[in-house]
């Protein structure tokens, strides 16, 4: 007969296994629910057709929202990645152990805790709205991109700074010892060595941004037609389409919301897989 201590250990092992299994189960449940509800509507039409208004009973797609999501995320990437990586280079290389860099480091952490709806309101205030201190651009992909960029920035800065810091110091010394300036050391040795890990961080930030809804409701709004400008018209996105259609009365729109959820999950999954590949290449 086993002692009580051994039984307790077996019991606790079982409990942790159960918790791990539940975590897996939740993901599987979400995925299968989305596939069951949205899978039937997946066809080429989704990518080529425009969203139907509520009175249309069948058909339609969300080609414009897919493009809108890709556009908005692309703008966010173009804004946050170069900026974020340069900031990370300052934090972990040029400005190491300065007061300014520790202040920026702290504020980056604060920024990552700001709720996305607040970021949305901010972007609405300074870019969208037609009154007061604002760029007065209206609802647009630019406005959405800026909001998402603000959300991505702390993630990019954090992961890039960590990636740079994990490059061993003796490699830096070797470059300096060969007569490299600090700039040459960072841009020719340290940054290339950190690129795989930085890529992972960027992918995670992209996955996070692609699914954001709250800030986009306030910045891109939604539309039923194709997008023909970065600034003028409201820009439909997948996440806002899900928000608008899922709870509406139209059965057709509800089905499209599920299909859009499926595509959104697939996009996030693909980015996660790509980031996995980026890490593997490093080893």
């Amino acid at each position: 007969m086993s002692s009580p201590r051994t039984l307790f250990a077996i019991g606790m092992t079982g409990l942790t296994f159960l918790a791990a299994a539940i975590a897996l189960l939740i993901l599987v449940a979400i995925l299968s629910y989305v596939v069951i509800n949205g899978g039937s509507r997946v066809s080429l039409d989704l990518f080529t057709q425009l969203p139907p208004v509520a009175v249309i009973k069948t058909g339609g797609g969300f080609g414009n929202a897919l493009i809108g999501t890709l556009m908005t995320v692309m703008i966010a990437v173009l804004l946050s990645v170069p900026f974020g990586i340069l900031a990370a280079i300052y934090l972990s290389e040029f400005g190491r152990e300065t007061l300014f860099s520790s202040i920026v480091d702290f504020l980056t952490n604060v920024l990552s805790g700001v709720p996305s709806i607040v970021v949305g309101v901010f972007a609405y205030g300074v870019i969208v709205t037609k009154t007061g201190f604002s760029l007065k651009l209206g609802f647009s992909a630019i406005a959405g991109g800026v909001a998402l960029a603000v959300l991505m920035l702390p993630i990019v800065v954090r992961t890039a700074a960590e990636a740079l810091e994990s490059v061993p110091n003796d490699v830096r010394q070797a470059a300096i010892g060969l007569g490299a300036t600090q700039f040459q050391t960072v841009f020719r040795i340290v940054l290339p060595a950190a690129i795989p890990s930085i890529t992972t961080g960027v992918m995670l930030a992209v996955a996070r941004a692609a699914g954001e809804t709250a800030p986009l409701i306030l910045t891109t709004l939604f539309g039923y037609s194709w997008i023909n400008s970065l600034i003028a018209p409201p820009t439909p996105t997948l996440s806002v389409l899900v928000f608008n259609f899922a709870t509406g009365p139209s059965r057709n729109q509800q089905q499209l919301a599920w299909a859009a959820s499926l595509i959104l999950v697939a996009l996030v999954l693909i980015t996660s897989l790509l980031s996995r590949l980026a890490i593997r290449r490093k080893v």
Binding site: P168, D170, V171, Q173, A174, A175, I176, G177, L178, G179, A180, R188, I189, P192, A193
Partner: peptide
């Protein structure tokens, strides 16, 4: 100055680059 006075460190510290690029770096 460091181009005139080179250094070899305690722990071998090649750059994470090809053998060729390691030497061509300087």
């Amino acid at each position: 100055l460091r181009r005139r006075i080179g250094m070899v460190f305690q722990k071998p510290n090649p750059f994470p680059k090809s053998i060729y690029d390691n030497i061509a770096f300087g």
